[in-house]
């Protein structure tokens, strides 16, 4: 197939993705959202970003891993503690990577 043959599918997927992202931005001011929706909205950052992060810590190939041999879980907990104490993004990331590296190294011994 020629590369141009793929463009209609890319455009369809791109327009659909754009429509989802534009949805409420485009509607703002033209309608009045229901009260429950307005009360739910302030929690979007916390709920959505936590939902993205937790499977990365707890799941390995789709299975829940809560054991000592899951370095991502323990490195993630170190990062949570550092973030809670120091509230510094780069420090949190550095601590998480350092913990991950250390735990993997210990696991290989």
């Amino acid at each position: 197939m020629n590369w141009t043959d793929w463009l209609p599918l890319w455009l369809a997927c791109g327009l659909l993705t754009f429509a989802i992202r534009y949805s409420f931005i485009g509607l703002e001011g033209r309608y009045r959202p229901p009260g429950w929706f307005v009360r739910w909205l302030p929690y979007v950052p916390i709920a959505a970003l936590t939902a993205l992060a937790t499977p990365e810590l707890l799941l390995d190939a789709g299975n829940i891993q809560l054991g000592a041999d899951n370095p991502r879980l323990w490195a993630g907990l170190v990062a949570i503690a550092v973030a809670a104490r120091w509230r510094n993004t780069l420090l949190t990331i550095a601590a998480g990577f350092a913990a991950l590296g250390l735990l993997r190294w210990l696991g290989d011994l």
Binding site: T54, E56, A84, R87, T92
Partner: peptide
């Protein structure tokens, strides 16, 4: 990515 999200959310 999860580390950055943790740094932002916590």
């Amino acid at each position: 990515l999860p580390l950055t999200f943790i740094a932002i959310v916590v």
